[in-house]
Design a protein around this nucleic acid. Structure first.
Length: 431
RNA sequence: UCCGCGUUAGCUCAAUGGUAGAGCAUCCGGCUGUUAACCGGAGGGUUGCAGGUUCGAGUCCUGCACGCGGAGCCA
């Protein structure tokens, strides 16, 4: 008998096959019994009929418990009544391992309990749907950049003491060289790579030791950061909107089933088509004031502010020209008005907050040096970064997109903790 | 760090200051088309920890721990 996966059942109707998997669920009516199994690719109902089976095989049902593993041999039938649409009429059943007292039952559970059992929670249908969408998003990201001729350049995860404010960095001992820190962003390295390859992206985990405890924050999260030589802020925004449109439309196309399982309103995602609205920081403030928020010029937007702004639009909105004082040292200032940085944030609709932060970078040696001094950063640590402005400096721009916030938005989730297999948060680093 | 809420059976939750309970899970029995099946039965408790008030505390008070939601923070 041929070994197959549940997702392939459609090709084997009327044939006898072999499946391997785990028990998700059992139901019994005495002389007819049902097992719902999963094999990682999907779920499928098995039926055992007493007068069609040897007693020994029929009674194996009694031994099986939730999450016990087994092999099954049987006939594939199309069956409307079965979850998944197919049913296996069991001919034989081989138990591999009996699970005892599996903790996650089909009834509801609390957040803490589920997070404590995250390693088992991953087996549930909802987590399958979310992590398949995550996979699709990551795949779309790679496809998008690869098709556009970007080179993937991995940035280091262990970095020297370079960035300002080490309070938000995770610190570790590094042999005889003193302290090392877990990276907060691969951007500076991406800039170096862009001067080598023109169009590059980094993609990896980043770490923030911030004491943030909200639905939008993790201490370890994944970020993709493209960087393009000879690009300005407008080029950066063009790239960002094409990128986000591609991700969303690819997920709708390839993972509709998962989005439907998550009861996501897909019509809202279908509207995510270029062009996205682009508003100046001043326009964003106007929106806030019209909505009764007393916002002071020069501040960055808080979570509530972002929600109010994004709710004015049914697509992601790009807010550009932030006050330079709230943005990073490496961002280029608007030559027409030095109060502003050539920066852009993309806010996802429906209150999902900032998913992209980007900017045109300062490409002038003297100006960048001045910024480093203004921010009280150690110049020695930035010598290599300043080299990029010494040897053939060019205008360049890039952005970073947070994977988990993007997954949460596209899936319509309450909290980013479900968007990554093993979330790391301020009060949790297990399992 | 701050504000608010919470912690009772393996899980989700009840319980006027007066005998700690239900559903699910587990175990036993019944049922030939179930869909978080259903029906009957059984076992299962240091009420987060430490004090205090009271004849009597799951319930009221104090402290601590942990969790949840939010704020701040998030170059």
């Amino acid at each position: 008998m041929k070994k197959i996966y549940i997702e392939e059942l459609n090709n084997y109707i009327g044939q006898e096959i072999e499946l391997s998997g785990w028990v998700t669920h059992k139901r019994s009516s005495g002389k007819i019994r049902f097992i719902v199994m999963r094999d990682g690719s999907g779920i499928c109902q098995l039926v055992l009929i007493k007068n069609q089976l040897p007693e020994e095989t029929f009674n194996k049902f009694d031994e099986l418990t939730q999450e016990s593993s087994f092999k099954v041999f049987g006939l594939v039938k199309k069956e409307e009544r079965a979850p998944g649409g197919f049913e296996i009429e069991v001919r034989n059943l081989e138990i591999i391992h009996i699970a005892k007292d599996y903790p996650i039952t089909p009834k509801e559970h609390g957040v803490e309990f589920l997070m404590d059992h995250r390693h088992l929670w991953l087996r549930s249908s909802r987590q399958h749907a979310i992590l398949r969408v995550r996979h699709e998003i990551i795949n779309a990201i790679r496809t998008f950049f690869n098709n556009k001729g970007f080179i993937l350049v991995d940035a280091p995860i262990l970095t020297p003491a370079a960035c300002e404010g080490t309070t938000t960095l995770f610190e570790t001992e590094y042999f005889d060289l003193g302290k090392a820190y877990l990276t907060q962003s691969g951007q500076l390295y991406a800039e170096a790579a862009a001067m080598a390859f023109g169009k590059v992206y980094t993609f990896g985990p980043t770490f923030r030791a911030e004491k943030s405890k909200t639905r939008r924050h993790l201490t370890e999260f994944w970020m993709v950061e493209p960087e393009v030589a000879f690009a300005d802020l407008n080029d950066d925004m063009d790239l960002a909107e094409e990128f986000v449109e591609y991700i969303v439309q690819t997920v709708i196309k390839n993972r509709r089933k998962e989005l439907e399982y998550l009861e996501r309103d897909i019509s809202k995602l279908e509207k995510v088509q270029r062009p996205f609205p682009r508003i100046h920081y001043e326009e964003a403030i106007e929106i806030l004031r019209k909505n009764g928020i007393n916002f002071e010029w020069g501040n960055d937007f808080g979570g509530t502010d972002e929600t109010v702004i994004s709710e004015q639009f049914d697509k992601p909105v790009m807010v550009h020209h932030y006050p330079a004082q709230v943005k990073a040292f490496y961002m280029k200032r608007d030559p027409n008005d030095e109060r502003y940085a050539l920066a852009v944030d993309m806010l996802a609709p429906e209150g999902y907050g900032e998913i992209i932060g980007g900017s045109q970078r300062e490409d002038d040696y003297e100006t960048l040096l001045k910024r480093i001094e203004e921010h009280n950063l150690p110049k020695e640590a930035f010598e290599w970064y300043l080299d990029l402005r010494r040897y053939g400096s060019v205008p360049h721009a890039g952005f970073g997109l947070g994977i988990e916030r993007t997954v949460a938005w596209i899936c319509g989730l309450e909290h980013v903790r479900e968007t990554i297999p093993f979330p790391r948060m301020i009060y949790r680093n297990t399992p």
